[in-house]
Design a protein around this nucleic acid. Structure first.
Lengths: 233, 233
DNA sequence: TGCATATTTCTTGTCGACAAATTAAATACA
DNA sequence: TGTATTTAATTTGTCGACAAGAAATATGCA
């Protein structure tokens, strides 16, 4: 497993941290590194064929985004998904859906919508193919593109963080995405995009709110189902 | 100037980065390090009496919060205050004022209000003493305490970031705070706290919104005055 | 055997040094 | 004198090594 380490000498100076950061980030979000997994610096330095210094820098960045937890002088591990404060997450997610969509209707430029439409087409393909993992990631990319058209970096960065955490959460339950609901999401996306294009801020906000609440209520149903399973075991 | 470096040997392992991070952060927010200031790693390592490694880690964290900008292989410097996208900042600030106050009215516990009242008293003292710098920092602390009573870490962390950036911004114009307006802020704070205690979410949200818009419009007036000055020079 | 203490092992935090990238200075040339 | 190319100096990115803390293991003692 030295496919990454073998790049040792062809790496450009300064690119190491980004590579490590991106790969670890994806592995955490895809649950390849499940919550609670220990993060060993020397192990990572062997795997990526570089010293501990750049590894460490990547870990500091991940810790800054709350993806890993570091206990001083002790182990560092992938952060837990907090099921207790889930309502905080849903509150923030719904609000960001609303406000970013509203701002997109207000401030977008025509060329922004091209990228959005491309991603919407990819999302529709993923739904058609019943590829739940692709649905999750293209959905996040789509809404992030809408947020960027709203041109408020504060909202966009918070929204991005929330969508990433959601990616981790949804991956736990992606099996149940194989029903008829996603098709409704495709239609809702189309409506939202149309409202943005028409610069109808009120409608865009309302549709985004309903869309977000749909998603949240579905996740909550999944969580409750899971809880019942826990009890019955 | 080796008052910091002289602590070399009494420092506990692992505390170095936090010290450097905290000090640099304050110096940036207080404009002792104005936007655009170059950050030299070896200079800092001499000043703090430690190697470049912990300095570097502190800088990575500061970069993660957008307080410094790092160009690869080149200099790193204190990030600029972005006057062009100011409306994004105000939009986000007002929304966070509203939502955190609303959630505080909903979820606060009685003991939360003790800390809030203490900070409100400190704010009133600062206004009475016409200490603009203290007003800025106690005001931020007060609203952050309210946000924490709302118990949504996503909103609280974004709000904290916004208040910090505001601290930097306001410090540019704090002279003009020596007028009668701050007294009105004291009264508005009292009303907001009362609404929170009464768990009147709608009122709390409305008051917070008006309060935030007051502040924003005052800052905007200051900015416009400054622009006129720029033109006349 | 059961518990407290000492020792070893393992992981993290820090260090000084080196090498690559960039910038500044110096030299060559028209 | 002005511009292009080389050379030196500065600064960042990376490395290997060492030391401090904490955890695991071993030892001493009742």
């Amino acid at each position: 497993m030295d496919s990454e380490a073998s790049l040792r000498n062809e790496r450009k100076r300064g690119s190491g941290v980004k590579v490590v950061y991106d790969i670890l980030r994806d592995e955490i979000l895809d649950l390849e590194l499940p919550p609670g997994s220990p993060i060993d610096e020397v192990q990572l330095s062997e795997r990526f064929g570089m010293s501990r210094t750049p590894i460490r820098e990547a870990l500091v960045r991940l810790a800054g985004e709350g993806l890993i937890d570091t206990l001083p002088n002790r182990s560092t591990m992938v952060s837990q998904i907090d099921f207790l404060n889930m309502h905080s997450y849903f509150d923030a997610l719904v609000l960001m859906y609303r406000v970013t969509t509203q701002l997109a209707a207000k401030y977008h430029r025509p060329e922004d919508l091209e990228g959005v439409r491309t991603l919407q087409a990819e999302f529709a393909d993923a739904v058609e193919a019943q590829d739940a993992l692709a649905m999750i990631s293209t959905n996040a990319a789509l809404h992030l593109a809408i947020a960027e058209a709203g041109r408020n970096p504060y909202f966009t960065s918070l929204f991005s963080r929330l969508l990433n955490e959601g990616r981790r959460l949804l991956r736990l339950y992606y099996q149940s995405y194989n029903d008829r609901l996603p098709r409704r999401f495709v239609e809702e996306h189309d409506e939202i995009i149309a409202a943005i294009e028409a610069r109808n801020t009120e409608l865009a906000e309302r549709l985004a709110r309903e869309h977000a609440e749909q998603i949240v209520s579905q996740i909550q149903k999944l969580l409750m189902r899971e809880e019942r399973l826990d009890v019955s075991l």
